[in-house]
Design a protein around this nucleic acid. Structure first.
Lengths: 215, 215
DNA sequence: TAGATTGTTAATCGATTAACAATC
DNA sequence: TAGATTGTTAATCGATTAACAATC
């Protein structure tokens, strides 16, 4: 495993996808080739091999990779095996949906609490997790060593919430507000920009007739 | 406006972000320079200018762009002004959250109905939109000329749901299942892969100490 | 052995950034 | 006019793909 090499974001995006597939086939196949994975997803086989080289490097000519080993190596690399607590700010529809979703556990992330400005939702629980008032953010982060924050507030509040979280020591921000957040070096922001995805799809429908575009 | 040029996905992702900002400032500023937008978002000014050239080309040296014009041009380009009906398949937590979210209207998309396999949710409504049984997908798509589908089912069902939708004439698929979907040419899949985003954030936290990475 | 498959080095492709002339 | 700003052409950067030697 290349521990110090810089791993591209694209590779990092594909690894969880491979992991899912490997878990899917693990009972039926002991070995898998990069070629096989590439064929399944209809992508380039060299790309798969390069991606896997980041976490493994243990493939063998002719037989490929040992599925169980590969799963363990990707999980280890992604950190799926160490539990990370995250807090969520903005317990609206989207925020509560994320709190209700238990699938993040598969990747080692657990939303331990949410914070909201409105008295209406504060004091309630969603999927067993408390929704607390803004006031408590600083203390909660300090006591629980929170390093990841999820922002599901409206655009207008996103930057100030982000500043507040990073001020509390948060170094990874998952931003669902359709805006670009400015952060200090060392803090990573990952934008889940639903508007941008919609724009791409909507545009595709409109340019439709001039067609012929692949995928 | 360059109507026939191929627009990069990256540009398409940034345009809605600019649009949001322009709407935010439109009451306070009549003009805006690409330089100003770039500074606000802390990105390269030439990039902003190239992005805007795709929709506008009407910037003037010294004064920049007319905010109101630019808003109209981006909206026109993105199709925010033509209403597109979409259906959603999989009315679980995430699916219902998307149905409850009214922000998509800003980009001209409306979820008109959802479909679910389980009898438990069928027959209910979410945010005024009906949840219907799988059986009705084909008829509903045909009657309402549905071109966009949103997939919020578990991974195992995603490909078959996708096949079914594209079989009904859907040409734009918004996929929330953490898997790669194979589709015929002419169909665009946009993956909203929450697992991949988490992987990137989680990895950042783990490599933390070797730090120094920007943004 | 022959052939499937790996892993690496080189070539290509696409997107970002730098340099600069045009212009209001 | 001088300077801010645009838009374009060229250079750079990063990621994908092709070519190929190594190996089980």
């Amino acid at each position: 495993m290349k521990t110090n090499a810089t791993v591209s974001k694209q590779t990092l995006r594909r690894l969880p996808v491979y992991l899912h597939y490997l878990n899917f086939i693990k009972n039926d196949a002991a070995n898998i080739s990069a070629t096989g994975i590439a064929e399944f997803f209809d992508i380039n086989d060299v790309q798969v091999r390069k991606d896997l080289a980041v976490v493994s490097g243990s493939g063998r000519p002719k037989t490929g990779y040992v599925v169980a080993e590969l799963i363990a190596q990707i999980e280890e690399f992604l950190g799926s095996r160490t539990e990370t607590d995250a807090i969520l700010v903005g317990a609206g529809n989207l925020g509560r949906a994320l709190m209700s979703y238990n699938g993040f556990a598969e990747y080692g992330i657990s939303i331990s609490a949410a914070f909201d400005k409105s008295d209406g939702v504060c004091g309630t629980t969603v999927n067993g997790k408390p929704v607390l008032p803004y006031d408590g953010i600083e203390e909660y982060c300090a006591h629980n060593d929170i390093q990841m924050g999820i922002i599901t507030v409206p655009v207008g509040e996103a930057q100030s919430v982000c500043d507040r979280l990073t001020g509390c020591g948060v170094r990874a921000v998952w931003n669902f507000a359709p805006t670009i957040l400015r952060v200090a070096p060392g803090v990573l922001v990952e934008n889940e920009n639903l508007a941008s995805s919609l724009a791409i799809l909507s545009r595709h429908l409109r340019e439709g007739e001039s067609g012929g575009e692949k995928n």
